[in-house]
Design a protein around this nucleic acid. Structure first.
Length: 459
RNA sequence: GCCAGGAUGGCCGAACGGUAAGGCGCACGCCUGGAAAGCGUGUUCCCUUUGGGAUUCUGGGUUCAAAUCCCAGUCCUGGCGCCA
């Protein structure tokens, strides 16, 4: 959320920012409402002032026993009460309207963010790991086929128990999932992160604090009600990213100067509806309704946030470096920034299994595994996250940042495809082996049930 | 889920229906050779800032006037119940 005074005083800058984002917000109408509200506010304040004077006088008149003057004053006070009600009623309406509307105005991008309409204008900063690639099979089996062959990913049965867009991991697949989580969290612990294991359902107020609501209700899973219905502050949603519970855990608090920078990591399941996304690009476990992710959330002093963003990016990258997975870093352009972000870097891992048009020369495709964003005080203002700067009287909004560290399924896709061997097994990256009980290669499992028999996959 | 008690500033904590004490912390100033102590001022938000308004968990109600009385809700604490 932007500051209202800021909107009044920097109208042109905000207008440009909205334009660059391609945001559909009527700023002029907002400012007109604001102007009207300020008029009413001034009138109401004057009337209340008069009434307060009279009320105070009544107290004295009662004490002095001046019956007649008292009656007169009470009469005037009643009149004022009616007037005030009239003026303030409209004032409150406008105030509510303004409060709602300002929630839909997106963050102003940092000046360093490249201009552009959409993902085509994102800027590639650098690549890592392509100079020294491992030897790959001639034909790389995409993870969804391989996962089925090895019987470590089972989408069909998950469709039966839950629905499409969900999957079972089995045996070595499930083991790999747990291993990745522990591996990542160990790395981030080294980097100074304090673990948090948050509650998975979150209230509407939390979703609003980080910017998922009100605009993106359709992307989330709501508990106990349809997404089309009105929701209120206490209604619950399934965590779409640990950013939501973790950022909001200090909502309406004032942190101590000494607490900052505060770095939390949280492993949670994430739930996303992402309605209507089907096709070759989303086959397998690249885009699913439930996935696990280790999230990094930072709370910092405003002057440190851009330095921290660079460091945060490095902390997330470290996971891919240690796994030896090639990747690239993108700087998102203004049109591709998410609602609350002032600046974002994407980390995209290389998954060589499926050739896509926008993939690298070596074939395969890019998979986004993390977005490192600086939200400046946008979320802090919505969620009421403050700190007290040294030598300063009043509390100030702090800055929040976050990055995935990382999204597990897509890393798993990269491992299954990049570490695939000619014989259809998968080599486990060395640093991960201790987390897999010393196992070095994923060899798969014998399939279960008559369906396997019928398909000739069992005798 | 039931019963009882509670929610006041950054923190602690007072307040017969008459317009929010006091303390702590912090900032600034005075005092001092310097510091401590002491003294003074400030320390929520909003507006058109020598001024004014709002604000005692939230929302309603009674009243000329509500932290205070009434109703509803949220959360916390304790007890009981249920329970992996």
């Amino acid at each position: 959320m932007l500051d209202r005074t800021y909107l009044r005083e920097n109208t042109d800058e905000v207008r440009d920012a909205l334009e660059n984002r391609g945001a559909d917000v009527d700023l002029d109408e907002f400012l007109e409402l604001d102007e009207r509200w300020r008029e009413l506010k001034a009138r109401g304040d004057d009337l209340r002032h008069e009434r307060n004077q009279i009320t105070k006088k009544i107290g004295k008149l009662v004490a002095d026993g001046k019956e007649e003057e008292r009656e007169e004053a009470i009469k005037r006070s009643r009149e004022l009460k009616a007037e005030i009600e009239e003026v303030e009623e409209e004032g409150v309406e406008l105030e509510d309207e303004l409060r709602e509307r300002i929630l839909e105005i997106p963050q102003v991008p940092d000046e360093s963010v490249p201009l552009g309409l959409d993902e085509r204008h994102n800027v590639e900063d650098r690549r890592w790991g392509f100079d020294d690639l491992r030897e790959l099979p001639d034909e790389i089996t995409p993870h969804y086929d391989l996962g089925e062959d090895l019987d470590i990913i089972d989408e069909e049965r998950a469709a039966k128990t839950t629905g499409s867009g969900f999957y079972f991991l089995k045996g070595e697949g499930a083991q790999l999932e747990h291993a990745l989580i522990q591996f990542m969290m160990d790395i981030h612990r080294e980097q100074g992160y304090v673990d948090v294991f948050p509650p998975v359902p979150v209230k509407s107020t939390s979703m609003r604090g980080t910017g998922q609501l009100p605009k993106f209700a359709d992307d989330a899973y709501r508990l106990g009600g349809s997404n089309e219905e009105e929701y209120d502050d206490e209604d619950l949603w399934l965590c779409p990213t640990a950013e939501v519970p973790v950022t909001n855990m200090y909502a309406n608090e004032i942190l101590l100067d000494d607490d900052l920078p505060l770095k939390h990591q949280a492993y949670t399941p994430n739930f996303r509806r992402e309605a209507g996304e089907h096709g070759t690009e989303t086959r397998g476990i690249v885009r699913v309704h439930q996935f696990n992710k280790v999230e990094l959330v930072n709370f910092v002093e405003p002057e440190d946030s851009y330095d921290r963003l660079e460091e945060l990016l490095g902390e997330a990258e470290e996971v891919l470096k240690r796994l030896g997975l090639p990747y690239r870093i993108l700087e998102l352009c203004t049109g591709d920034l998410t609602f609350a972000s002032a600046k974002t870097y994407d980390i995209e891992v290389w998954a060589p299994g499926d050739d896509m048009d926008d993939g690298p020369e070596q074939g395969g495709r890019w998979l986004e595994v993390s977005s490192a964003s600086n939200f400046e005080d946008f979320q802090a203002r919505r969620a009421g996250l403050r700190y007290r700067p040294e030598r300063h009287e009043s509390a100030d909004y702090l800055h929040t940042l976050n990055a995935s560290g990382l999204a597990i399924p897509r890393v798993m896709v990269a491992i299954l495809e990049y570490y695939q061997n000619e014989d259809g097994t998968v080599t486990i990256p060395e640093p991960l082996q201790p987390y897999m009980g010393g196992k070095e290669v994923i060899e798969g499992h014998e399939k279960v049930g008559e369906s396997a028999l019928g398909a000739g996959e069992r005798e």
